[in-house]
Design a protein around this nucleic acid. Structure first.
Length: 230
DNA sequence: GGCCAGGACACCA
DNA sequence: TGGTGTCATGGC
C-alpha cells in the first residue's frame, strides 16, 4: 500500500485547522473517568455513540462502572445492562476480558498503567480478545494519555478521498502518517480524531445541499469538496 | 424496509 | 493477505 500523496503532512495540517475553525474544540473523550473511556471504547465498536450512552448510563445506575463490579457481575446481567449498544453478548465478554487484565496486571490502578512502556502496553492490549488496533489506541490516547493517534474508518475514508493514500491502506500506514506530522502532542491527537468523527458523522446530515453523506460508501466527499482543502 | 453506526474476529481461498 | 459473514440494537 504505497502513499499516493507525496506531501501528506501539509494536507494533514491544513485539514486540522479547517476542522477546528468549523467545529471548535471537542474536548474528547466524553467520559467522567479513565475506566469509563475503556468501557466506551469497547461499547462503541460498530455502534453509534447514542446507543452507547444509554448502556453507559445503565451501567452507572447499576453501580457497574468500575472494573471490580464488572469482573464479579454475572455475564447475563452485564449483557442486559449494555443491551442497547448491540453485540451485547460479545461486548460483555470483552468487558470481562479487559477488566480481568486491568485487575491482574495493574490492580486497576491507572497510575501503574502509565508507568508501562507504550509499545509494550499496546501489544498487551492487542492480545486481549476483542481489543483491536482502534480500540487499543482509543484507550492509550484518551484513557492513559499517550501520544498515539487513533485511526478509524472515517479517517481512511476522508483522507483517501483527499488523495493521501488508498482507503485500503493499512491502519499502521495511516497512523504513521499522522503521527509523523503531529509529533507527540497528545491534546492535538485527541482533538484531531474527535474532529474527524464530528465532521464525518454530522456535517453531511446538517448541510442540506450535500445530497450524499461521507458516512456512506458511495459518497463523493473529498473528490467533490477537495477544493476546500486546497 | 434498508442503510449505517466512533470494530473485531473467524473462516476461507 | 484480502474478502466475506457474523455479532445486534436503534436512529433516520
Amino acid at each position: 500500500m504505497g502513499v499516493i500523496q507525496s506531501k501528506p503532512h501539509n494536507l494533514i495540517d491544513i485539514v486540522y485547522r479547517r476542522l477546528l475553525v468549523e467545529y471548535g474544540p471537542q474536548n474528547w473523550w466524553p467520559a467522567e473517568t479513565w475506566f469509563e473511556i475503556v468501557v466506551g471504547a469497547i461499547l462503541t465498536q460498530g455502534t453509534s455513540w447514542r446507543n452507547v450512552e444509554k448502556a453507559i448510563n445503565k451501567m452507572k445506575s447499576a453501580g457497574a462502572m468500575n472494573p471490580k463490579a464488572i469482573r464479579e457481575m454475572d455475564s447475563n446481567m452485564l449483557s442486559e445492562l449494555i443491551y442497547s449498544s448491540g453485540f451485547y453478548r460479545i461486548k460483555a465478554g470483552r468487558l470481562k476480558a479487559v477488566t480481568k487484565y486491568l485487575g491482574q496486571r495493574f490492580g486497576d490502578n491507572i497510575e501503574i498503567i502509565r508507568d508501562v512502556d507504550s509499545d509494550k502496553l499496546r501489544r498487551e492490549l492487542l492480545e486481549i480478545k476483542g481489543i483491536g488496533q482502534e480500540t487499543a489506541d482509543d484507550i492509550l490516547l484518551y484513557a492513559v494519555g499517550l501520544p498515539i493517534f487513533v485511526v478509524d474508518s472515517y479517517t481512511k475514508r476522508i483522507f483517501s478521498r483527499l488523495g493521501i493514500a488508498s482507503e485500503k491502506g493499512s491502519y499502521r500506514l495511516y497512523q504513521s502518517m499522522f503521527m509523523s506530522t503531529l509529533g507527540n502532542d497528545v491534546s492535538l491527537m485527541k482533538e484531531y480524531h474527535a474532529l474527524i468523527v464530528q465532521h464525518a458523522s454530522k456535517v453531511c446530515r446538517t448541510i442540506p445541499s450535500c445530497s450524499k453523506c461521507c458516512i456512506k460508501s458511495k459518497c463523493e466527499f473529498g473528490s467533490k469538496q477537495k477544493d476546500i482543502y486546497d
